[in-house]
Design a protein around this nucleic acid. Structure first.
Lengths: 236, 236
DNA sequence: CAACGCATTTTGGTATACCAAATCAAAAAT
DNA sequence: ATTTTTGATTTGGTATACCAAAATGCGTTG
């Protein structure tokens, strides 16, 4: 991970497809025909096929036998299920981080959290959203458990769209800030119980936020064009 | 072969490769050259390549740029890390199962656990081991969270080899039985706190068991030939 | 007009051929 | 004898061609 040296064409295609999906350029439910997409980008079917498989494993595409893969259109229930898992992963991360994180790592997390608090209101929601994700990822990284980090990253991807839409609610942003503060404080105190509680609270708020969205717009329309490409250090 | 018709050649190859890896026919660290393996099985490189990617995503193979993929040889630390995640996933499963499992599901789990207790000593360790896995999977299934189930299954795969070797310790088997009993009792009482504790205890015992193995044989030699092919309803 | 059936087409699955980067080894230069 | 260079070979990455199953649409038939 880390730098973005895209080695193989398939990875490049996967990243590009992922962006298109997450940004809503490819609407949920839309078919992704490997032939057409490959032709459109002037590549052969082979790497495109591989890219599709990658995204399928990530849960962004649904593969069905002898039929075009389609962009996943997770129901509220599926999103909630995924968040439940995400919460468990982050809670474990927090717990582990409490006794494995270095002082430097904790300091860096605090810095990021403070930067987010300062810039709140001065930057657009997309940047704010990315800072949010970055803080979560940093906490997971502080767990010093690569497997956990990898799985967490996968769930973050899968939930990117839902989280993004939630982040655009103005009223939710203040709450996010406060809850991040609680999490970081617990980490600084290396209080495993407190950090687990804080993380669960944070993500349960996310669930209820998304639930509201669903009641108004059950399908989650495409992301407006002004939303620029996300960048998480990683794949996206 | 299995209960379900294997749809694509790539899946078949992936399953076969997985068996060979888990049974130790392909030793940890061994290279898996897509050309040779494809030729050996009289298939083309394309599906073999795809199979390799599948197993890589599962963590059983390690892909390195411009070099043969090799069979993963997880260190004790990596195994421990994976078990930490597994424990979190199962703890969540237990918690969810406590208020979502149907009475039938709980009854079925109890049946399996009792069957395992009865047959203990009468069947070989491989069958016993499979029953162990089945019970764990049933609990996860009772969480009614497909994403959780999928991720859990992936970790179970990744840890199959380590768990298998641990299961062959005679002294550990009685403990497993008792701990399973505790887990099922907690589930029957729908006591989330108790089931989480029981699951964590169970898996921490697994860690210490594996740790002992490692101190005597750091590389985990191949599985003896008499070990027949595992069968989990699923992929293996 | 509806239902069935056959042919066309679309789509994914598989095989094969070609290419470029990396490796290894042998030979040449110092 | 050691190092360097270079060419042969191995290996993964990509493109393309072919195949079979499934969907689709149209025409026939009741």
């Amino acid at each position: 991970m880390g730098t973005m040296t895209e080695n193989t064409l398939a990875e490049t295609l996967a990243n590009q497809l992922r962006r298109d999906i997450l940004r809503g350029k490819l609407a949920p439910g839309a078919p992704v025909k490997e032939r057409d997409h490959a032709a459109e980008l002037s590549v052969s079917r082979t790497p495109m096929r591989e890219a599709i498989r990658i995204l399928a494993k990530e849960g962004l595409l649904i593969l069905r036998p002898s039929r075009s893969p389609i962009v996943a259109a997770p129901s509220l229930e599926e999103i909630t299920n995924a968040i439940d898992v995400l919460a468990a992963l982050e809670a474990l991360s927090g717990e582990l981080a409490c006794d494995r994180a270095t002082e430097d790592e904790i300091a860096e997390i605090r810095v990021q959290q403070q930067r987010m608090a300062e810039l709140y209101g001065k930057i657009d929601r997309i940047e704010l959203f990315e800072m949010d994700m970055r803080i979560h990822s940093l906490i997971v990284a502080a767990s010093h458990n690569p497997a956990l980090q990898e799985t967490h990253q996968a769930y973050l991807q899968r939930l990117w769209r839902a989280r993004y839409l939630s982040a655009s609610r103005k009223d939710s942003r203040e709450r996010v800030l406060r809850q991040h503060g609680e999490i970081v404080e617990a980490l600084e105190a290396r209080d495993a119980t407190a950090i687990k509680a804080a993380i669960h609270a944070h993500l349960e708020a996310l669930v209820s936020n998304i639930r509201e969205h669903f009641s108004s717009d059950p399908q989650f329309g495409p992301v407006p064009a002004w939303a620029e490409a996300p960048r998480t250090d990683n794949t996206i």
